[in-house]
Design a protein around this nucleic acid. Structure first.
Lengths: 301, 301
DNA sequence: ACCTCGTTCGGCGGAAATGCAGAATAAGGG
DNA sequence: CCCTTATTCTGCATTTCCGCCGAACGAGGT
């Protein structure tokens, strides 16, 4: 056998019944499948398929070969499993950091799973509003929301968009009515930010959205702003990720374009290629992909 | 596993203990082996070898992988065996032709083996001095000695050189002395050719090698010329392939440059890609390679 | 009867894998 | 102690492979 990988293509074509279908399942081009089958037949000097307009059909010899190729595949799968187990016995320690809401919604649920898959990798999580300096070794991995983080000594990867919009308590809406567009914000009470939070695009947008808005409260954390909104103090700009999870809150209108942020995965440069960090990142990215629609808000429209 | 063929390289490197040795055993470049191992380690995120100046040494994980890769290999070998059996169950009929001496020395011994390997391929051999016209369908395959055959409607492949030299009977040498160079041929009795045989380079060379040579016999076949030489009638120009097999004959001097011929394999164009003909040709070429040194004469000088 | 969908096949350009040559560096033998 | 041999790694040139596109062609449905 000149190239064992031909067998992988053979299996796919045999099972799909066409080179096109096989190509889809393998994530390659149809032409590639056809060529590899041709190569296999040429080197083995055995016709394995009948070419038809309707697809590739196994010959008798091909059918006999199929069961043997399946055995090869079985052994390869076993090997892959062992390799996976090998990786999962990776050990090491790493420090991750993020803010409270991302921790609650994303990181902590992920950690539960991760711990099962990689029991020997110890993850220490620091939940803080402060932006730890990865380049200085304060942590290895961070999940950050907002604008693109500075990238000195770290690798940065954008995960998804985090839409924002204006929320108010359902109770507030009953009493004062909820605005349905930017134009109706005028006259409403709004909840503002303090310190870093005041600089967030969404928070500033709300304060400047209309003349005559009264800032009834200022807080230095989104958690606190959320609490204020729940208490019915007024309108608050919040990430949908947070606002949508509060049953007491409602969106005033769909996510406002331009005030959203992004979710960023940041990794310390030196830690990046370390095997157990790598394993952590791979798993995390997979998990983030799985929950992306949740993060981006189901009604992003 | 992105590419099953990586496993083949992994096995080779693990067994050879170095990428260089593995490359030799696989017939590829050392760089290729090194790169495929690197790719395998990258996709599996597992270090399989320790790189040392003295070579590649398996890590513990690599050693664990080795036994599993060997299992994959075992299945591949089984598959290859089945494929071979598949080919050997090829059936069909083909006609081969050649002259008597090549038949005796090459084709017939080969046929005995071939019949065992491919019991369902029926080979009909026509042994004749006449040159059958393959293009007209008189045969499918021919082994020809001499000058390059004409190639209309056929594929021609050169197998090896067929050296010629001058022979005489050992008995003759005792009685008259054997010439040790072209210069000493003068005065000896020589055995000439008739018809086609007279045109063969070696035969003509002997007759024209020296003035005053007496042609004591002429025959239309090399078999007959050989018999004449064995009988001690005089010198004969013969292919070493024939002359060396006659215990009663001896070489007068080393093979004469310029009078030798070549052995040619000729195949009818239309028959060339037919599976059972292909199988015959592949086996024949392998056999010819194995006996080439015999054909070219051990003391070719 | 015609149209659409799924498929195979060929040609072409770009990308990726491969081979080649040279430098660097241990290990082993004289 | 030095020289030879075997090995790995790097940069560059080339070959091979792969993906894209369009044409051709049946089959099945309307």
């Amino acid at each position: 056998m000149r190239d064992w990988d031909d067998l992988r293509h053979f299996l796919a074509v045999a099972r799909a019944g066409s080179t096109l279908g096989a190509a889809r399942s393998l994530g390659v081009n149809q032409t590639t499948c056809a060529r590899r089958i041709a190569a296999l037949e040429a080197t083995t000097r055995t016709q394995l398929f009948e070419r038809r307009r309707a697809g590739y059909r196994l010959t008798e010899a091909g059918a006999r070969l199929l069961v043997l190729a399946a055995r090869v595949e079985r052994e390869v799968r076993a090997l892959e499993g062992a390799l996976e187990a090998e990786r999962r016995m990776l050990s090491g320690r790493l420090r991750a950091t993020t803010n409270e809401s991302i921790a609650n919604d994303v990181l902590t649920p992920f950690l539960a799973r991760f711990r099962e898959a990689y029991p020997r990798i110890r993850v220490e999580v620091t939940i803080t509003d402060r932006t730890l300096e990865l380049a200085r070794g304060e942590a290895d991995v961070a999940l950050r929301a907002g604008r693109q983080p500075e990238a000195v000594g770290v690798a940065v990867r954008r995960i998804c968009h985090l839409p924002w919009t204006i929320y108010c308590a359902r109770d507030y809406a009953l009493r004062h009515g909820a605005p349905t567009s930017q134009a109706e914000i005028a006259g409403h009470a709004v909840i503002g930010g303090e310190g870093n939070v005041a600089d967030i695009a969404g928070v500033r947008w709300l304060e400047e959205a209309a003349p005559g808005t009264e800032v009834v409260s200022r807080s230095g954390s989104l958690t606190n702003m959320t609490a204020a909104a729940v208490a019915g103090l007024g309108l608050a700009a919040l990430p949908c990720m947070i606002g949508d999870r509060e049953p007491a809150l409602q969106r005033c209108f769909p996510p406002v374009p331009g005030i959203g942020g992004d979710l960023w995965l940041v990794v310390r440069e030196e830690a990046r290629e370390v095997p157990h960090v790598r394993a952590f990142l791979d798993s995390l990215v997979a998990h983030l992909g799985a929950v992306r629609s949740m993060l981006e808000g189901s009604a992003t429209g």
